[in-house]
Design a protein around this nucleic acid. Structure first.
Lengths: 334, 334
DNA sequence: CTGAAAGCGCTTACAG
DNA sequence: CTGAAAGCGCTTACAG
């Protein structure tokens, strides 16, 4: 029994097991009609030799790479937990994940996504950043693309992160608690989630005649955009309820209020979104809508894999979001 | 000129350009001795046909995958920016990045890293999480492994995140500002960075006879560990300077102080680490040591690639960290 | 139930 | 300067 210095291949296993190379292949894949005893012997020898199939060779033969690409950026827009959730869902389905970090404008990102979808190196592309839907012509043999948060409805989107319906409950509870003046500090409009949050805000604050909205500011998901929104307010703005599109904005809102000498939640109440860790430890602690990013990433990946396999998109059961009332909204509860 | 429905290969390009397949290969790689005019024609035809080399085939032939693995977790311990920096450095060097999300104890992570290093699917492994160095026997043909933050010095480590020298300056400035009582709330001991920060804390607070340390708490990088450390203090702890090993811990320290009615920075001053965005918007804003995580990720990846290529590790020039004095330390400056 | 053989699409000595 | 040919390590009809 010769031991080769380098990594054994299926021929080495075949030789050691006294069978043909094709029998090794069938034994390992479980596909052919191999006698159980032969199969066991091959498996034992393969294990003993530390055999691992060469995935490049398999890929060349099967014309399937077994890889999907995930497009992210360095920015805080994307959470590690979402990437992890997506990666784990991919592994579960037998796919490996290629990470691609992109920067630049939506058009550049779109070009990169299209390039990936056409590269033939991956069977699908999941993008965590908005892309320009017009650029995503999937005529030719391009791989399917799923965007977690899309510019419009022309492309596949998981939609789950864009569900803003809980905000209606938040606003209703604040109105019940006698809040009558509102302000929205939103996210960039190319994020479907930002648009959905703004839309619900507009609809819900418009529902009551005696509820006033000071407007909808377009922010950048950043604390600074929340802070600036507050600093730009007239002195008589409070009492005011600020609906921030994420926790970072909400933090900036609280900071801005502090700089203006406004008490939170006495003069200004604030709600965030995402359930960021820090929100539980600010003073006051931040009311927020928690998001299960790990599961969101997993669902997006499952949707991509369904698209790859031409299966119907899975319909998830449990909700991904939840209202978490904390100190920044004072005594308001639903 | 026949147009095949599927992806063209080098034979298709050869036929369309009226040359042999090997000439196409040489023209694209620029390796052989191809006449400039031939080469140009081949390149033009390849572009026209939208030819892209099949990487699986290339990989099988060259026996090099052109891939590196990055091991991360869902946890906040790892930042997206660090992953992005690593991914971009990999692309720059001609490598693609496979993302592997792991969870579980250090031993499980180590097993996974070893498995990856031996899988033959990647040429190197970069782990963002601590692994058990004993498990990392790289005898056989395993791929090199680099850990960004390692358990001990037996394995390769970038070390740069573990450089805690700036903390000496921070403590010196606080001592100059008449702070005499200190507390350290650190990170888990299997992080080299956590150990280095604690070591510098111990050395620097031990340098002066009239400086007292209330001890070194082992935390979990989490706000809760900072909060608990403060809640466990005796009532007469202030005036106190708390050195937190990261910004999340520092946030929890501020929260705990707030719960105890201690003013920051009046009764307690606090410093964090990492330069997290939220730290600029807390009240008071958090003094911290900023870390360029993108560059840290890039340097770690460059070190891995140097190891793959058997080149000496690159020696970085610019420092990755910087002290950022803000409100949580009051008027102390260096 | 097992094996011989073709072929996936490249790279790279080698011959001319 | 160019081309014919081998071979990387698999999967999978097909013959026996």
């Amino acid at each position: 029994m010769s031991v080769s210095a380098s990594r054994p291949n299926s021929h080495d296993v075949a030789r050691a097991a006294g069978v043909s190379q094709s029998t090794v292949s069938y034994a390992l894949s479980g596909k052919g009609t191999i006698a159980p005893r032969t199969r066991e012997r091959v498996l034992a020898v393969a294990a003993e030799l530390g055999y691992r199939p060469n995935l490049a060779a398999r890929s060349m033969r099967t014309r399937r790479s077994g890889r999907v690409a995930v497009v992210t950026s360095t920015a805080a827009e994307v959470r590690m937990s979402m990437l992890s959730g997506a990666a784990e869902a991919a592994v579960e389905a037998g796919y490996a994940v290629d990470t691609h970090s992109v920067s630049g404008a939506a058009q550049d990102r779109t070009d990169r996504v299209v390039e990936l979808a056409r590269s033939g190196q991956v069977e699908g592309v999941l993008t965590f950043l908005p892309v320009v839907p017009d650029g995503l012509t999937t005529d030719d043999g391009a791989a399917p693309v799923v965007a977690v948060t899309a510019l419009d409805e022309r492309m596949r989107s998981t939609g789950e992160l864009a569900d803003a319906s809980l905000l209606a409950d938040v606003i209703a509870a604040l109105v019940d608690a006698r809040h009558r003046r509102f302000l929205h500090v939103g996210g960039p409009a190319d994020f479907a989630s930002a648009r959905a949050r703004r839309d619900v805000y507009v609809a819900e604050t418009g529902r009551h005649d005696d509820v006033e909205s000071l407007g909808e500011i377009v922010g950048t998901w950043s604390p600074e955009s929340g802070r600036e929104a507050i600093l730009a307010l007239p002195d008589d703005a409070p009492p005011l309820a600020v609906i921030a599109a994420n926790d970072h904005i909400a933090l900036g809102v609280m900071r801005g209020a502090s700089e203006r000498g406004w008490q939170v939640p006495g003069d200004v109440v604030v709600t965030g979104w995402d359930g960021a860790t820090f929100g539980a430890y600010t003073t006051p602690a931040l009311t927020t809508i928690t998001v299960d990013f790990r599961e969101a990433g997993a669902r997006a990946m499952r949707r991509l894999i369904a698209a790859i396999r031409d299966e119907p998109a899975p319909t998830p059961a449990a909700p991904l979001q939840q209202i978490l009332w904390r100190e920044s909204t004072g005594p308001a509860r639903s």
